Amino acid sequence: MYLAKIYVTYKPSILDPQGEVIKSALHRMDYAGISQVTQGKYFEVKLNAKDVDAATAEVESFTTALLINQNTETYRFDLSLVEDEVTL
């Protein structure tokens, strides 16, 4: 079983209004050294796949099909092998 940690953010060319609001609030709180804030979405998905290549292909497929807006968002992900959970 694999665990995919997927990070979705706006593309650099897209204005991030929520990030700008957070940055402004931080400046008002005297955190003057903050130059940029990017907000986004985070997903954790467990999947069964025969190997890391199959898991990678599946994550890329469902992420571009469902989790992101390809016009405005980009993503990256980390993939790790996890043990099956045992529930007692």
Rank of each mutant, 00 (worst) to 15 (best):
E73N: 06
I34L: 06
D16H: 02
P17G: 07
S80W: 01
Q39C: 01
D16I: 04
R76F: 11
N69V: 03
F62N: 03
E83G: 09
P17V: 05
Q36T: 13
G19C: 01
L47F: 11
Q18A: 03
F43S: 01
T74I: 07
T56N: 12
M29D: 09
L88S: 11
D51F: 07
T74E: 07
E58T: 12
V59P: 04
G19T: 02
D30H: 15
V82E: 14
K11N: 00
D30A: 09
G19K: 02
K5F: 01
P17S: 04
K41C: 01
A32Q: 14
F43W: 04
A4P: 05
V82R: 11
T74W: 00
D51H: 08
I22L: 08
F77E: 02
K46T: 11
S13V: 09
L15A: 13
E83N: 15
I14Y: 06
I6C: 12
L81K: 14
S13D: 12
K11P: 04
A4L: 04
D53P: 00
Q36F: 02
I68S: 03
F62K: 04
L67K: 05
L26R: 03
D16N: 10
Q39A: 02
E83H: 13
G33D: 11
A65D: 14
A57D: 14
D84M: 00
P17N: 01
S24R: 15
G40H: 04
M1E: 03
S35G: 15
S24K: 15
S24Q: 15
K11A: 07
K46D: 13
Q70A: 14
S80H: 07
V8Q: 05
K11L: 06
S61N: 14
L15C: 05
S13T: 11
T63Y: 05
D78Q: 13
D53W: 09
Q39E: 06
L26P: 03
T9Q: 08
Y42L: 12
L66D: 05
Y31T: 06
